[in-house]
Nucleic acid binder design. Structure first.
Lengths: 242, 242
DNA sequence: CAGTGGTCTAGACCACGGT
DNA sequence: CCGTGGTCTAGACCACTGA
């Protein structure tokens, strides 16, 4: 990636992460950054917009760009993030076990909740995630076979997302997610160390490619006491219409 | 608001909501929109960027901007949203009861989790939310008194956010949220109709003003079976740094 | 008042898709 | 090839802040 604004964004973000710019510091002004990087103001503003959106800074007209305290509590595990990335960010070690890896045919109503079209073939993948020697997450993935021809235990055990994005070069654009709490099922009891919990936290997520076609359905079932979902959100009252 | 790009964004968003542009339709090209609205391309691109970010469209280089199916399941209740807005969007009627409205002093460790500074005074507000005649949500709000001098039962019963933003003109910038599942407390049992559930879904949210000062802490405790959190997220691998 | 960010413009060149 | 969106530039004017 040789984008100027992404390069600048990354550099500034790293400076904030590394403490070169500390919380409540002012970033150099847009004019100063223009000169420092020898680019136009618009390019700087693009970089700053991403920093704003990602929760690194807060701008104030007439004042400047303030650095926010990004570590108040463990930061954005938000967005579409793979399990491996998530583990890396939390600095914890997870162990993945592949329990099921098979192909299914989408017909009848059994798989209606996947939002896939009928008569498609899909991979069905069940994986458990172990922390501190307890199975606390059950991930049920369904991926359309037409996008991912080959799949192995090894790929599933490591990072599916890395394989899909780096090897297959598929471009994931967006995801719709839904978080609920459900009574645990026989499956949950079979695969997870649930202690005495009778509910699980469930994250259902529909993943779409850049061509707007659905590509994957994931259901991530967590033992309640180890479940955390963190989010950074900006308020844009003007985006709410009527 | 007389911003051109916001006006255009809202108009396009409404067209999509009202079905003038349907899922999988192509929006007019940027050049066409420029002419139609008699503005520069940058202005159009700002509008389209918001549409993209909010999940209305998906752009494709060389092709155009495709309209996404925004109603696949009830849409973004994401971001910083007040309970009243939320009810409006879900098209349900909620009843709010104000249970506690008092001032507290922040000292010692009792309120450390609020992230407020010591020796501040804050409003403590407990409200329950009733749907279908059952109390299913307990909202515990803590708001710094220095920002909100006066508060009445009526304001709390209607919309706190509306009062704060429209009347007091306080500008809310962003929030950090955290979703967990917790064992229910005596308070939960006292205020909620929990049936036989022994856990609650908890949304903790720290709200900040444009001056980057914390302003409010909210803890929203939901009976598990009625809890849903919906999110639309774009994947930006390039934003994830090292 | 000077300096900051917020909006808007006009024009350039590139990368990509479909013909 | 042309039309699409993606990046970048240079310059203008405004609104807000703080001295």
């Amino acid at each position: 990636m040789s984008n100027k604004y992404l390069t600048i964004y990354k550099e500034l973000a790293n400076h904030i992460k590394n403490g070169k710019y500390k919380p409540n510091d002012l970033l150099p002004s847009e004019t100063e950054l223009m000169k420092a990087y020898n680019v136009s103001r618009d390019t700087i503003r693009k970089s700053l917009n991403i920093l704003t959106q990602e929760g690194y800074i807060q701008k104030a007209q007439g004042k400047g760009s303030f650095v926010l305290d990004i570590n108040r509590f463990s930061f954005p595990v938000s967005g579409v993030v793979s399990f491996k990335e998530l583990g890396k960010r939390l600095g914890k070690d997870f162990d993945t076990d592949v329990k099921i890896l098979e192909c299914i045919e989408i017909k009848g109503n059994k798989y209606a909740h996947l939002n896939f079209n009928k008569n498609e073939t899909a991979w069905k993948i069940y994986r458990t995630r172990k922390i501190d020697n307890e199975n606390i997450i059950l991930d049920k993935d369904f991926i359309l076979k037409k996008y991912v021809k080959d799949l192995t235990y090894d790929i599933c055990k490591n990072s599916l997302y890395e394989y899909i994005e780096n090897k297959l070069k598929l471009k994931i654009a967006y995801a719709k997610k839904q978080i609920t709490v459900e009574k645990c099922t026989e499956e949950d009891k079979m695969y997870l160390d649930l202690k005495d919990y009778d509910t699980v936290a469930v994250v259902k997520s529909y993943t779409y490619l850049e061509d707007t076609n659905i590509f994957q359905y994931t259901e991530s079932r967590h033992r309640p006491d180890r479940f955390v979902f963190v989010d950074f959100a900006r308020r844009n009252p003007f985006f709410d219409i009527s």
